[in-house]
Each structure stands twice: as C-alpha cells, then as structure tokens.
Amino acid sequence: MTARPRLHDLLRQKGSRKWLQLHVDNGEEAAAAVEAGIVILSCEADGTLEAVRAAAPSAFVSVGMVHGSVASPDEAVRAGFDLLRRGADAVYCSHSPRFIEAMAREGIPVTGHVGLVPNRAAWTGFRAVGRTPQEAARVLRAVKDLENAGAACLEVEVVPVQLAAHITATTPMLTMGMGCGDACDTQYLFSCDVLGSHAGHYPRHARRYDDFVALMAEVQARRVAAFRAWAAEVDSGAYPAARHRIEMSAEDLARAIELSRLA
C-alpha cells in the first residue's frame, strides 16, 4: 500500500509537482480514485467521511465543515478536532478567517476558499470571480487574510488562470484549483461531474468522462425487470421450485409434534 501523504509531504513538494484531486461521495468512489492514482480527496463531514477513510486509507482527505454548523471560533476548534479524530487530514472551512485562525492555532490543518465560494454566492452570484482589477484585488486580499490566519490549503475556484497562477506562485498554501486551468497545485473536480452521475447543471470547467445517469437508468430498469420476473413466477407457481425447498418426512414431522407436547 502506498504511504499516506501528510500535509508536510504535500507542502514540501509544492512547486515541484502537481496532484489530481477529487471530491467523492462514497467509499466506492474513494477506492476507485485511489486505484486510478488520485491521492488527494475531499468529502463531506456526514457519514461519508468514515466510508471514504476506510476505503482510501492511503489518501489525503480534506473534509468539509458544513457552513453555519459552528457559530464561534471555539465551536470550530471542537468540530475541527472531531473531524481529525474521525479520519480527516485537513478541515475545509468557508467561515471567516477568525474561525480558521482559531483552528490553525491549535494545529488543525485548514483549507480555506477564494473565488467562487458557493456558500458566499449571495454576494457574487455563481460566476467567475476576479475578472476585473478591483475584484481580483479583493480575491488577493482574501488570500492574504487566509494565509495570515494560518490556513494550510486554499481552494481556488473559477478565477482567471493568470490570477490563480499568481496566487499559487506567491502563497505558501497548497492551492487546490477548480476551473483555474492548470495553474494551481492540484487539479480538482467533483466525481459527480466526472462520472456524469447527475441530471443537473454541469459547470463550464467540468468534463463528463462517463454517463452514469444512463447507466443507473439501465440498472434500475433491470431491477424492475428482475422483480417482475420473480413476481410472475410466484404467481404461476414456478417459484419456489423443488430445489428451493427443504423437505422432511411425515414420520419426522409427527415425531417432532409428539416431542413438543412432552416438553
């Protein structure tokens, strides 16, 4: 088994290599990702974490702290330690830098987020962020705030490639790039987009490499067909057949009844 990379290992190699990163939804996807050579994963903090950790013990896993699940830096510290105890290598946090600083001060590796931050999209909309000098400057200030707070990793989502490259070259944080070309330290996508496993909107930066919607529709149709076939055989008497039954003689049944009365 390949050794599990630690934060120190990743930061030590920053600038000398790039990694693939995948957000996975279950243990099966995590195992497939590792088998495909992907060693940096992310997942949600619900029951998914334990399944991902068990399926991918050699992966570095950044786990999302649900936005709004903590209301103070102290709560963030407690929640962060709980995620580490459950198997996280880093804690993704889209809260303000004061929450991140509290966790970082206690040695919890934290992943911050700049650019298109879905949990803050009320202020930006779901669009590319940083196309104008003024907006790019705000992104850079946010990067510096997270860096000063002690974040170890930084998700950079849907910003201009040039801006992402500048951030990656000038910050010690490991940059996790989604929709930023190949500028960041990791090339990051969601498994549901790669697999084509949903019928919703696919971001412009995503690419489908399979069609799991069609595959699962076929699987569901085959489920229905199998259940109907079973129901039809029960109705016709073909099931259960002799090979599906266990028999006993009339004499043995009579003896069992007699023994039960003596008990």
Rank of each mutant, 00 (worst) to 15 (best):
N148P: 06
G200F: 01
H201T: 06
H205S: 00
V39R: 04
P133T: 04
S94D: 14
A164W: 05
G130Y: 14
I167A: 00
A56S: 06
R127G: 09
E251G: 13
L7F: 09
A241D: 15
Q134E: 15
I40M: 10
A254Y: 01
L259V: 11
L154M: 00
R222I: 08
R53H: 01
V110M: 04
V34E: 15
D82M: 10
V158L: 00
V117M: 09
C153H: 05
E29R: 13
P118S: 10
L84T: 11
P5Y: 04
A128T: 02
E28Q: 11
C153S: 08
R228Y: 12
N26D: 08
A151I: 06
A263E: 12
V34T: 15
V139K: 00
V117G: 11
L146P: 05
E75T: 10
R141P: 02
E135Y: 01
H113G: 15
E258L: 02
L262E: 13
M173H: 02
A33Q: 15
A88Y: 13
F126Q: 12
A256V: 06
A76R: 04
V66F: 10
D252P: 09
D182T: 07
C184M: 03
S260W: 02
A54G: 08
L7E: 11
C153N: 06
R255L: 06
F99I: 03
A165C: 00
R208T: 03
D145W: 09
S16C: 13
E135G: 01
T124L: 03
A241P: 15
C43E: 07
A231Q: 10
L49R: 00
D25H: 15
